[in-house]
Design a protein around this nucleic acid. Structure first.
Lengths: 383, 383
DNA sequence: GGCGTTTTCGGAAACGTTTTCGATAGGTAT
DNA sequence: ATACCTATCGAAAACGTTTCCGAAAACGCC
């Protein structure tokens, strides 16, 4: 039936089971197993990018020579290099970064994890990161946690799988455990926290003037004559929420105003929460005469709602918030904010990380605080 | 002086030049060249991610077996798999996507080129892209052209170097030549255009209702009694600018209004250009009684400037624009817009691209048009 | 026990680079 | 010529996977 592949004999060949769907044979004389060949598959080759080997073949030189020509090694004849570069250009050669990275053990890519790319603050940070990274020859890979802890963990794992050289992360509001960070840190991965940082892990960090900004805003309200200042706080587990709340408390304390827990309302950065907060405050026996919103989104919402209810701003209730948005300037009345600089924060974080990547040995653990600016506008100008 | 590496003889060894800084020798008997060994380099090994080989070694099995265990092949004993998975988990194994992609010839990554990540429209598109891509198991790599043609070309090359499986692109306002796109298309790379598309290349496209939206906005102005409608157009080389301008012209024509070129002003999407435009229009013998801004940014700027000059909106001049922004709703007077849905556009573009990647043979060249919505607000309600 | 079969695993090639090592062909002084 | 040297190139290993091929052992059935 079937010829042995080696001795061509037919008589000594016996069947020997199936292997991956194909009949298998055994030649007793040669003592060898084999299967019949499948007809060659589709000769249709998928279009590929040109490789160093393609260039080498077309010129009759070795791949190593081509590599040398492309990488500016001196170990090559200038005529050879010239010719290779010509052909490479002709064939539109683009080095395969996968192969390069695999070989080098570094990708020249940094990973970024943010809660949400649509929030203008984070978009600004991203732009700053890209700016510095591109300048330094690094690529950027962006993941969104969508404010979910499990997604954030998956993001980190995905970036690790892509073998990023370093990690920039701003935590989701859900995140209270930092094992996923600590694990990578232990493996020696450079990590820089920004904005929503945490104290539990030893990384370099870039933060806002959360305490100082809150203090300044509340101080400003007090100076404008407010005596019962409500605060629209963020998720209590988030460190920046806590810090900003402490700034609020410190300002009250500093000016001898009582701390009233009924004036503190925690939100989750969601739509129309500020409405519930407002209802709560207005139902108090002594409603507030000033509101400090940790998040500009809440401040805007409150402004709109107060206007709808025909409550005078700032005379009946003054409003201030953290923020960096154009809208704060354009809305009426314009909103007093502690202005942030997301782009610069992104730049700072990225350059810190890249510095840590390059000088891996002297891993710096500094904490940089970005400067903010109190911008006083109509929503709080009572005097 | 020096022993031959093979025969240990000393007498037959002669110097033979220098090789990369090290003295080279030649043994006449063995006819062999050699250099003296350098002392072994730093034994300090950089921390690495664990590999399949690490797992294999720690269990005494072959790497191929580990691979089988991890990839759910049936060709493996369930106890072996169990043990391998246990160790893999213990060592926090993460597959090296570089190696996987290099082997498979595909990266499961799509590249995105946008003009600017800080523009809320594009941030929204990105979010939509990420949403669909993540769902389909694809990663996303984002580049900004910063409205520069050369940067856009570099972006495309960088993404090609990263061997993305497909490309989503919205052109810079400078881009009038599309060779960088055509080149990749010729190599068989799936490409989908969105928003700022072009007609010169045969790709699938996702566009807005640019013509229809313009027509609807201008029609609305006419119905509100406007008779001299100015248009704040975009960069003339941009296709969407042209299309929106044509919608404007078509509406005028349809309602029998004359076309006046002095009412058309082209901007470059830059700060405070609308000011110059406004000055120009107001200096005309017959100033406009309505303004249509192609870009919401210009519309907002115009609104602010008109207010500053105490020009009544909409009675003296009505304002409308394209846009998707919250700010249009909050500014006073609120802005009438043709509302866009960037998130949905991103989703559509990404699913179109991924479809093209998966069914590479039946490359679909359809053009999808996203639905917009005319949202009438105070800036144009004269009746 | 012999034949046919299945299960389970290892070896090796391949993906596209870079880099190390070594070989060769010419130099240039004696 | 001889001894030493330099310039230029090729071969091969390595990076971490997957996959193809085949081998060995165990299994089933007369």
């Amino acid at each position: 039936m079937v010829e042995c592949r080696q001795c061509q004999s037919v008589s000594e060949v016996v069947k020997a089971g199936f292997l991956r769907g194909r009949q298998r044979f055994y030649c007793k004389t040669c003592q060898v197993h084999f299967t019949v060949e499948l007809p060659a598959a589709s000769p249709q080759k998928a279009a590929r990018q040109t490789t160093i080997i393609d260039i080498a073949k077309s010129l009759g030189v070795a791949p190593s020579t081509v590599s040398r020509a492309l990488n500016g090694s001196t170990d090559i004849n200038s005529l050879t290099r010239q010719e290779i570069l010509r052909v490479a250009n002709e064939m539109d050669y683009r080095p395969n970064l996968l192969a390069q990275s695999l070989h080098r053990g570094e990708t020249h890519t940094i990973g970024v994890v943010i809660p949400n790319i649509e929030r203008p603050f984070f978009a600004g940070v991203l732009a700053g990161i890209q700016n510095v990274a591109t300048e330094a020859g690094y690529r950027v890979m962006i993941c969104q946690s969508n404010e979910s802890h499990s997604t954030e963990t998956l993001n980190v794992q995905a970036l690790i799988a892509s073998r990023v050289d370093g990690l920039l992360i701003s935590h989701s509001k859900e995140t209270t455990s930092f094992e996923h960070i600590r694990l990578q840190l232990k493996k020696g991965l450079p990590i820089v926290h920004f904005d929503r940082v945490c104290n539990e892990v030893e990384t370099a960090k870039v933060v806002q003037e959360d305490f100082e900004g809150s203090f300044a805003l509340v101080e400003h309200l007090i100076q404008q004559g407010c005596r019962r200042i409500a605060v629209c706080a963020g998720p209590p587990q988030l460190l920046i929420s806590q810090t900003r709340l402490e700034g609020y408390k410190a300002a009250l304390c500093h000016y001898g105003l009582p701390l009233d827990d009924t004036l503190i309302y925690h939100t989750e950065f969601k739509q129309s929460e500020s409405l519930t907060a407002l209802n709560h405050w207005l139902s108090l026996p002594e409603p507030p005469d000033g509101i400090f919103a940790i998040h500009y989104g809440n401040a805007i919402e409150l402004l709109v709602e107060l206007k709808r209810r025909k409550i005078q701003i700032p005379t009946e209730i003054a409003v201030v918030g953290f923020g960096d948005e154009l809208i704060a300037e354009l809305i009426e009345p314009s909103l007093t904010v502690f202005h942030l600089f997301p782009f610069e924060m992104g730049e700072t974080a990225a350059s810190l990380l890249i510095d840590n990547i390059i000088h891996r040995d002297t891993f710096s653990l500094i904490i940089k605080k970005m400067r903010g600016e109190l911008r006083i506008r109509k929503s709080s100008m009572r005097l």
